[in-house]
């Protein structure tokens, strides 16, 4: 029982970065922009979050917001490349990863942020609520970002499905021609989607350092950006499915340290492989079912140019 409580109460903080990242990716890809640079945006967010805490002082919430903002700054560059210059989105995404790896490593070294622990952001104490057996620690024992994430999902759902601009955002990923003919601005919509998406990816990265690790080292995201991309495919660009995916992966990641803590002897490197193996299996499974195609935004990965003549 204790094992279960410990495990489940840890799931949200493992799931939150996935949930935030997938949310950002879905907003971005719904506009028709394939973002393979997720890992890079997460890294930039993670470093910025840590940097704020180390250099500016103990303001964890500001750190998280700045993490998102710095990822958005990189998003500006990404948007410039893929939306304005119409660079191949695969290449541009990979460049973002490479660039972010180099940049974060260089900046953190120059600023002296590497391997410096900080206090970060703790869990909220709801007093007696947290003391409720089982449910208390699982539901009321989380940090504030977890609750904000849930709120963000609700807001995003409203934004995407219940506003005119959300309607345009979805339309621009399906048929930019239709949006253009309707008088919408394809360039602006895609830029907006990229910036919002990058912000959430950055927040996911900030969460990794500010809340989870409470330290910065090079490459701390450890491939989570890539898992986030796979999760988007798993979620088929649907918000509610992405929560399921994020929680699923949170469960796996939270299980690994728990099992070790209770002394279960396991080949640790095989356990560490698990999320990646599961992701591949999930992709195979969802393509075997074959209903993947119709959910993919039709214009995903295709640059838009009005004057193109066929």
């Amino acid at each position: 029982m204790d094992f279960l409580v410990f495990w489940l109460s840890n799931v949200p903080s493992f799931a939150a970065p996935f949930a935030l990242g997938v949310l950002g990716m879905i907003i971005c890809e719904r506009s028709g922009v394939l973002n393979l640079g997720a890992e890079g945006f997460v890294l930039v967010g993670a470093m910025s979050g840590a940097g704020v805490l180390i250099s500016l002082g103990d303001y964890p919430l500001s750190a998280i917001i700045i993490a998102g903002a710095s990822a958005s700054a990189l998003g500006l560059l990404f948007g410039f490349l893929v939306v304005l210059l119409r660079v191949n989105q695969v290449i541009a995404g990979l460049i973002m990863v490479f660039l972010a790896q180099g940049l974060t490593s260089l900046i953190s070294r120059n600023m002296g942020w590497v391997n410096k622990p900080f206090s970060g952001l703790g869990r909220i104490d709801f007093g007696f609520l947290t003391d409720i057996p089982f449910l208390g620690p699982v539901i009321f024992g989380q940090d504030i970002i977890v609750y904000i994430t849930i709120l963000l999902y609700i807001l995003s759902f409203y934004f995407i499905y219940r506003t005119n601009i959300g309607l345009r955002l979805r339309a621009v990923g399906e048929n930019p021609d239709a949006v253009d003919a309707a008088g919408g601005n394809v360039i602006l919509l895609r830029f907006m989607a990229i910036l919002i998406g990058a912000f959430f990816l950055g927040v996911a990265g900030g969460y990794l350092t500010v809340v989870v690790a409470k330290i910065w080292v090079d490459g701390i995201s450890g491939g989570r950006g890539w898992i986030i991309i796979a999760l988007v495919i798993f979620a088929r660009w649907q918000l509610w499915r992405s929560i399921i995916g994020a929680v699923l992966f949170g469960c796996i990641e939270a299980l690994i340290p728990r099992l070790a803590a209770v002394g279960v002897q396991l080949p640790q490197y095989f356990i560490l492989m698990l999320p990646y193996v599961v992701t591949i299996l999930v992709m195979i499974w969802s393509n075997l079912k074959g209903n993947n195609k119709q959910d993919t935004p039709l214009a995903l990965g295709r640059p838009y140019l009005r004057e193109e003549r066929h």
Binding site: L167, R170, A171, E174, N175, D177, A178, D180, A181, A182, L298
Partner: peptide, 9 residues
């Protein structure tokens, strides 16, 4: 001539 419609909407 080619309709500018979003077919999933």
């Amino acid at each position: 001539q080619h309709y500018k419609l979003v077919s999933s909407f």
